[in-house]
Design a binder for these strands. Structure first.
Lengths: 121, 121
DNA sequence: CATTTGACCTAGAGTTGCTCTAACCCGTTA
DNA sequence: TAACGGGTTAGAGCAACTCTAGGTCAAATG
């Protein structure tokens, strides 16, 4: 699979995938005889996880650490679990933040007085 | 009130407050005879709203637009309401994203096998 | 009275995490 | 044959901070 297809499959832009590779956040990617990257389903699975992690605010630094552990394989499982569990915790507080903000917005919107039908058109 | 106090009250760093002022996202801020900014409770209220908007991912561009409308006052209410309502909508989908990611993480963590007591220490 | 401390000021450099451009290569297709 | 549609790299540009350097001033301290 080439980069465009991988991009569509994982949700990251081709720019971002190349950037992540340069930044050492991806496992080895083989090249075809044409010099183009060849992505396996395992790569796509990895990219998809990274997509979720970045989309929900994990830093590149942490993602790099996570990838490094995966490369070492075996020994790093405990720390990888810890990174993901820690991130899951931050997601909980992010969700609370969003809820809080939604209520702040609701109050603010209400403070503008009742909506006029005309405004919505 | 000076900048440090305002910063503590609204949640934005003093750097960010100054940056927001330079970027035209704040109403006029008066200066004391010492040249230092003087923040009123209204400023703090405004900064706090901006804090929530940025913390939940609104772009500076949109925040600038929002501030511009507030400066004009009166006529802009409809569009301001629309901006906030639109943002409230994006928060809903963000919240759905987080939930989705939380379940992705739970599956991934489970795939590492049962946690060892030793790992948690 | 002199100086040092601390809070503020500005301009501008540095950082993170992309995002895009320029210039190039290579295989197919008209 | 040349031009099109992918891919490649290096590096510039951008958003949104974040911090540093060098300065002012007011109050506290030696």
């Amino acid at each position: 699979m080439k980069i465009t297809e991988a991009s569509k499959a994982c949700g990251l832009s081709v720019y971002t995938i190349r950037f992540y590779e340069r930044s050492g956040m991806l496992p080895e990617i083989d090249r075809g005889s044409d010099g183009h990257r060849r992505f396996t389903p395992r790569h796509v699975e990895w990219l998809t996880l990274l997509y979720w992690l970045r989309e929900t605010g994990m830093s590149l630094k942490q993602m790099r650490r996570f990838t490094t552990l995966a490369k070492e394989d075996g020994a790093g499982i405990a720390e990888r679990r810890q990174i993901l569990a820690g991130h899951a915790d931050t997601l909980k507080s992010k969700r609370a933040m969003l809820e809080k903000c939604e209520s702040v917005l609701a109050i603010k919107i209400a403070s503008y007085g009742p909506a006029h039908e005309e405004d919505a058109k």
